[in-house]
C-alpha cells in the first residue's frame, strides 16, 4: 500500500486534485476498481464537507474530523491506516490533510510508528500566496517542509509576473521539491498525474 499525503492551505484545491488523481489511479489499476484507492479525509471542523463530495463520487472514505491528524488526532490516523490496510488493502491510500495541517508531521508519524514512507504533495494557491504569505508565515512555510512535489494551483487567476514571484518564493522555501503549475479551468495533465503516481 502506497501512501500519498495531499497538503496545502485552506481552499488551495486539495479535494479537486484528489478527485482527479484518484480517478487516474483507478484507471491505471488492474480491473479498474475504485476499491484500489482508499481515502482518509481529515477536516478541521466537526462536520465534514469534502467527504460528502468524495463519497458522491463513489470512493470509500474514512473520516477524521474536528482536529488535525498531524497532532491531536494522530492516533486516529495511525489506527485508520492500519484498519484500511487490514480490511481493504488498496494499492493507494490518499490522505487529504486539513488546510491547517503540517504534512511533514503526518509523514514523520507514519514512518516512525508504522515504518511507511509517504509521499507529500503540497498545493499552493497562486492567487492568495502574497496575501497570506506573511500573516500566516509559520503555517504556510511549514506546509512546504519535506514536500516532494509542489503544485501551484489557480495559475489562471494571476499575472505571469506574480506567478514567477510565487515560484521564486517556493524555490527558496523548498529547493528539493519539484514544482508544477496547474489550474482549475482545465484537467491536470496526464503526464503530471503519472509523475505523482511514480513518486
Amino acid at each position: 500500500m502506497k501512501i500519498l499525503i495531499l497538503g496545502g492551505f485552506l481552499g488551495s484545491g486539495k479535494t479537486s486534485v484528489l478527485l482527479q488523481l484518484a480517478q487516474y489511479l483507478v484507471q491505471q489499476s488492474s480491473g479498474n476498481q475504485k476499491s484500489r484507492v482508499a481515502i482518509i479525509e481529515n477536516e478541521i471542523g466537526q462536520i465534514g464537507i469534502d467527504d460528502k463530495l468524495l463519497r458522491g463520487n463513489g470512493y470509500t472514505v474514512r473520516d477524521i474530523f474536528s482536529g488535525c491528524v498531524c497532532c491531536s488526532l494522530n492516533s486516529d490516523l495511525l489506527s485508520g491506516v492500519q484498519e484500511i490496510k487490514r480490511e481493504v488493502d488498496p494499492e493507494w491510500l490518499i490522505i487529504e490533510a486539513t488546510g491547517v495541517a503540517f504534512p511533514d508531521k503526518i509523514a514523520e508519524s507514519l514512518f516512525t510508528n508504522l515504518g511507511i514512507a509517504a509521499q507529500i504533495v503540497t498545493l499552493v494557491d497562486a492567487s492568495r500566496w502574497q496575501r497570506i504569505r506573511m500573516p500566516l508565515a509559520n503555517l504556510i512555510e511549514g506546509q512546504l517542509n519535506d514536500a516532494h512535489l509542489i503544485l501551484i494551483n489557480k495559475t489562471d487567476l494571476v499575472e505571469e509576473t506574480v506567478l514567477r514571484e510565487v515560484e521564486a518564493d517556493l524555490w527558496e522555501l523548498n529547493s528539493d521539491a519539484a514544482i508544477y503549475l496547474i489550474s482549475g479551468i482545465k484537467p491536470i495533465d496526464e503526464r503530471l498525474l503519472k509523475v505523482i503516481q511514480n513518486g
Partner: peptide, 15 residues
C-alpha cells in the same frame, strides 16, 4: 449542531 475547533490560529466552526 455548531461545534468550534481551534488549530494554528484558525477558528473552524461547523454546523
Amino acid at each position: 449542531q455548531i461545534v468550534t475547533t481551534l488549530h494554528e490560529g484558525a477558528v473552524a466552526m461547523a454546523g
